[in-house]
């Protein structure tokens, strides 16, 4: 995929950061178009994920500081405030059905991280 306007999906790809800006098996937060996006470098699985940075439980900007891991096969992130955990794939909350976060497409090209909004 090209990091440009993709008319079919109506996704615009935004350069977020360099791959080295996100710690291995950890996360970080980028400001993109005024929106806070949490980015995860799941080195162990060779996967990258992007989600909302805001945890819907108490509206705290903290998901990017959360711990990642797995529940069964599902990759997940735990909010540092009250440990609500969210699937990195679907954004569904895994331990409290009432909550959900948005997930975003993410690609790596030439050591740069791009997020599709």
């Amino acid at each position: 995929m090209e990091p440009t306007q993709n008319t079919k999906d109506r996704i615009t790809w935004h350069l977020a950061c360099n791959v080295n800006d996100i710690p291995e098996d950890g996360g970080g937060t980028a400001l993109i178009e005024g929106k806070q996006i949490a980015i995860f470098n799941f080195t162990r699985r060779g996967e990258w994920y992007a989600t909302d940075n805001e945890c819907p439980h108490r509206q705290q900007m903290a998901i990017g500081r959360g711990m990642i891991g797995s529940q069964g096969e599902e990759p997940k992130v735990a909010c540092p405030f009250h440990k609500k955990t969210f699937s990195l794939k679907s954004g569904d909350c895994l331990n409290d059905e009432g909550y959900k976060i948005n997930t975003f497409p993410i690609i790596i090209k030439e050591n740069q991280v791009y997020i599709g909004l």
């Binding site: 162990r44 711990m67 990642i68 891991g69 529940q71 069964g72 955990t85």
Partner: peptide
């Protein structure tokens, strides 16, 4: 096994 979680990591 698996990829760890917020319980075993700390």
């Amino acid at each position: 096994h698996g990829d760890g979680c917020e319980v075993c990591k700390p």
